[in-house]
């Protein structure tokens, strides 16, 4: 990697962080991993490929709602940013099909934490 300069840091585009307009983030700290986030993450990667659903899937840290891990945050154009909790493999697939592809939110898994 090339050495960073002052300009590299000061002029960075804050929007770059949310690469693309559609993304899924999986909480992958110890609390998430202990609850099965690893499996959810790999399911999302594999199934999105299999189903030809194009979306940027990334890892992130702990959002704080440890009692409802694994947490998956989804941002799809035209819909609000949504945080799903207690996500299983099956729920992950439903998120891809229902939320990402058909733009319908899932019942009973959204957590609006304060």
């Amino acid at each position: 990697m090339k050495k960073l300069t002052k300009e590299d840091i000061m002029n960075v585009d804050p929007l770059k962080k949310d690469l693309g307009k559609s993304w899924i983030k999986v909480g992958m700290s110890t609390c998430g991993v202990a609850a099965g986030a690893d499996e959810v993450y790999s399911t999302l990667i594999e199934e999105s490929k299999k189903r030809n659903i194009e979306i940027d899937i990334r890892k992130c840290g702990c959002q704080g709602a440890c009692s409802v891990e694994p947490l998956v945050e989804v941002n799809v154009e035209g819909l609000p940013k949504v945080l799903y909790g207690r996500v299983t493999k099956d729920v992950a697939i439903t998120i891809l099909e229902r939320h990402v592809r058909n733009k319908k939110l899932l019942h009973d898994y959204i957590f609006e934490i304060n």
Binding site: D13, K16, C60, G61, Q63
Partner: peptide, 17 residues
């Protein structure tokens, strides 16, 4: 930044300020 950026990406951290 916890739960917002990718903790394994320096780029993310810099983009977040």
């Amino acid at each position: 930044n916890c739960g917002y950026i990718d903790p394994e990406s320096l780029e993310d951290y810099i983009a977040a300020g």
